[in-house]
Design a protein around this nucleic acid. Structure first.
Lengths: 334, 334
DNA sequence: CTGAAAGCGCTTACAG
DNA sequence: CTGAAAGCGCTTACAG
């Protein structure tokens, strides 16, 4: 089972390796028709396919990028990955997928490994725990694009949903439906994941803009496992909200588990709007009004920026925060 | 921004490249303490990290595997990928993810590319359109494991849900709840995707086993886009089913869209059970009884088998079809 | 228009 | 215990 190399093709075609290489790289400028044909036939005959590892070593480009997400099981990440893969595919790039699980150690290991494997660039949902490492990457002019998390003081282009807008759309819709007592439920902000912070901030701003005073008792934010109790407290307190913004898909699930368990009618007992357009939104009873993030556009943009950086590492003007507009999808839950 | 190579480390430490290489590969057997320290310090000082591409070229192993799914957006695929990634991570392997979209051309391109990139093996949800290619891979003793699709005449280890059992659990549960007129809704079988076929087969067998004659009018199978009409026909015909088995998550969504649109009560008007334990099953109104596939175990097994094959290519006894037991999760929809 | 030669950054069998 | 040398399979500047 000897593997066929370029040398074999060259010998078979009666030319040199250089010429075969030129042929493969389509530098036909000065190549005789006759030579081309001989090489073509030899390749065909031997079933030759070039070893990209060898090429990569020489060319210092692997046509591979790393994608580090928190968890591929999150729908948003999956959509982003799919968009990245599609875009890369067109440019003959491939992606190595890594789950950092919001663990900076794991993230660091992956980054080191990806660099050792000579990937041409990385798209990451950064944990926030490796600022120094990312700074080193910048210094080394290594192409990186961030997704969904802003790291202060790190000059890396970042793709974000306009989260303030997302909350403002949600609150706006609720206000329009006549609700004044509006609560928000968010995952824990202990780890300062940007979207959570921004959505809370956007919620506060939107209340104010609508002339509703912010009531700290109407905002709950905790680990998912604590949420059931917190939701209970929220909804059974003296002046409890009539309407709720679920800050993402996972808290929406918690809220729905709660309303189901306690036989709360939506929207009669409690109106509801969720950020993230979950797959079951339109078939739920009642159908759920949601705010959709343009995950595919965002993934595509990330890939676009990264490939641009890979082609031209000194492309300074690429830096910045790219905001994408979320979209309100009105259904029946508020 | 010159990159640091082994030669730099060697010079800095005052030893030869060979010695540095030995050090990196932890072949300390005969290495002087003093030498070790010098090398360690040089690596530290220079911030050296080995180029795995170069190593791969020499060692003919990239510690990378390809994973070809139909579509990473499918929940089952995502779970399988996650399990594979976790397992690979422990062995310092990484995965390149590809979406073949059930397109044999795309699948072929990916396989060629992955091989050119010298991945050590491939886990694929095969389209079925590249039997010859897969046979070539077998001949070349290239490690491959299949997931979720059986290809006749191709001797490649294959990980499968026991789909006949899945249907039998579904039908059994329905019978136990007192239903006799049991329909099944499946995606199109035009492309002979194994699980669809097996689930239909299992449905027929289970009916028989329960003494219920199979009625061809109770089985619909078509493209998702046609399903709404087909469901309508199914449920409005003379002797329409009282209970339905949704053959996977995507048809379940179609069925729920239909019942919602037509205000059909579940289970009063129509009882329902779905294969695939969708994320919203427990919070739906009513909570949905489902059959769960052990996706994570299956992904793990696939990775396990593939790495075994990679380590020992002549490992013949690995071939076979590995069946995993689905699980009934009883809730409120039937 | 084509080929010989050097080199990408490692590993490894062998010599000493 | 350590080093010189060959080689993995390509690409590319240069010579002719």
């Amino acid at each position: 089972m000897k593997t066929i190399t370029m040398a074999d093709v060259a010998k078979h075609a009666g030319v040199s390796k250089s010429t075969v290489s030129q042929f493969l790289n389509k530098r036909y400028d000065y190549m005789g028709e006759n030579t081309k044909e001989k090489i073509e036939k030899a390749i065909e005959k031997l079933g030759y396919s070039p070893n990209i590892v060898a090429r990569s070593l020489k060319q210092k480009s692997t046509k591979t990028i790393g994608v580090i997400v928190a968890n591929i099981l999150h729908v948003f990440s999956t959509q982003v990955i799919r968009a990245i893969e599609d875009y890369c595919n067109e440019s003959d790039f491939q992606i190595i997928v890594c789950n950092a699980d919001d663990d900076p150690m794991k993230e660091k290991r992956y980054i080191d490994m990806l660099r050792a494997k000579q990937v041409d660039g990385i798209i990451a949902f950064p944990t926030g725990g490796n600022v120094d490492l990312y700074k080193q990457l910048i210094d080394a002019k290594f192409p990186v694009v961030f997704m969904d998390r802003i790291l202060k003081d790190v000059q890396i282009p970042t793709i974000m949903t306009d989260n303030v807008k997302a909350s403002s759309l949600a609150v706006g819709q609720l206000v329009e439906s006549g609700y004044k007592k509006i609560g928000m439920i968010s995952p824990s902000t202990k780890t300062s994941v940007t979207p959570r912070l921004e959505r809370i901030e956007g919620y506060k701003q939107a209340l104010e803009k609508n002339g509703i005073p912010f009531n700290p008792n109407s905002l709950v934010s905790d680990d998912l496992s604590e949420l059931e109790n917190k939701i209970h407290d929220l909804l059974t307190q003296a002046s409890s909200p009539e309407a709720i913004v679920a800050s993402n898909d996972r808290v929406l699930l918690k809220v729905l588990a709660y309303t189901k368990k306690h036989h709360l009618g939506i929207p009669e007992d409690i109106a509801l709007i969720g950020i993230d357009d979950v797959a079951f939104a339109s078939i739920y009873n009642p159908a759920l009004t949601t705010i959709a993030q343009p995950a595919f556009q965002m993934g595509k943009k990330a890939a676009e920026l990264l490939l641009k950086l890979i082609r031209d590492k000194s492309n300074e003007e690429v830096f910045g925060i790219y905001r994408f507009e979320p979209k309100l999808i009105t259904r029946e839950s508020c």
